[in-house]
């Protein structure tokens, strides 16, 4: 029982990263119809930024947790204006290629300066202990991540469902053309939403720095799973991406714990789940079939 609870907890912690990343991808896809391949690279930049801020300027974790997401959101907005924006009228493949190229460039720039080896980043001292849950104790930092990620997801959900800003974003996401016909400048919302999605990736990166290896390729493997998460949740579905993020974290953790005798299954469980979901619901768990234009 204790073991099960611990594995569940860990699954949720991994899931927290998936959820934050998938949420960003989902809002970007919803608004721009762009599959942002560079999302993993921005996650990496978040972690690396925290490392650089600490070592070059002595900026602590807590400040990095604000500075990096905001800084990367601004960078994302600049990139959207400079490049992504120009290609949105063309086949989505163009933006996929653009963001893929961007990924390679960002990875290589970091590699050029800091090498491929992982860079050290320590857990902030306030979160270095363990929390006692009676049956078991759990690293404070993990509890913090889980709480923080859930709070961010709930906050984003609240803004999206309960505010006028959220309403407009939902409308732009669901039917951009119709929304323009109702007097709303959809284009003006695109840039900040792109920046926001990138900021979420950066936030996940800063959170990852103390517990994951910080290196130029840290986002490259992760992002493949996050794409699977987004597909499972339903492309562009905000709720779906978060739910699938936590769900896949759990499935992976349980798979590792209880299917370790079947490594073939536990290693590929994410993609097995994805295949099953797509056969059953081609638009993903919470996705809608695109309305005919």
């Amino acid at each position: 029982m204790t073991g099960f609870l611990q594995n569940t907890f860990n699954g949720l912690v991994s899931g927290a990263f998936y959820a934050l990343l998938a949420l960003g991808l989902a809002v970007i896809f919803g608004m721009l119809r762009v599959v942002n391949f560079a999302h993993g690279a921005f996650y990496m930049l978040g972690a690396f930024g925290a490392y650089v801020l600490l070592t070059e300027a002595g900026v602590p974790f807590w400040a990095a947790l604000v500075i990096m997401p905001v800084g990367l959101a601004l960078l994302g907005m600049a990139l959207e204006r400079a490049f992504v924006h120009r290609l949105t009228r063309l086949d989505p493949l163009y933006n996929f290629l653009l963001t893929f190229g961007l990924t390679l460039i960002l990875q290589d720039l970091v590699k050029l300066r800091y090498g491929v080896q992982s860079s050290p980043y320590e857990t902030p001292s306030a979160l270095n202990g363990s929390v006692d849950f009676g049956l078991f104790d759990f690293p404070t930092y993990r509890v913090f991540i889980l709480g923080f990620a859930v709070a961010v997801c709930v906050g984003v959900w609240w803004v999206l469902t309960r505010t006028r800003v959220g309403m407009v974003v939902r409308a732009c996401t669901e039917r951009p053309e119709l929304t323009r016909a109702f007097g709303i400048d959809v284009g003006r919302w695109v840039t900040p939403v792109f920046g926001f999605g990138i900021g979420l990736a950066g936030l996940a990166g800063v959170l990852a720095a103390p517990m994951r290896a910080v290196n130029p390729l840290m986002g490259a493997d992760l992002i493949i799973v996050v794409f699977a998460v987004v597909v499972i949740g339903g492309l562009g579905s905000i709720f779906g991406s978060v739910a699938a993020g936590f769900g896949i974290g759990l499935v992976q953790a349980w798979g590792e714990a209880y299917l370790s005798d079947f490594p073939i299954i536990s290693q590929t469980i994410v993609f097995i789940v994805m295949a099953v979901v797509l056969l059953w619901r081609p638009a993903g768990l919470f996705g809608r079939e695109e309305a005919p234009a």
């Binding site: 860990n10 912690v13 991994s14 953790a253 290693q267």
Partner: peptide, 16 residues
């Protein structure tokens, strides 16, 4: 045997 590559980056199941 942990998944390779371990895409989640998480080894806590084994460490626990």
């Amino acid at each position: 045997g942990a998944p390779f590559p371990n895409t989640s980056g998480d080894f806590s199941t084994f460490l626990l």
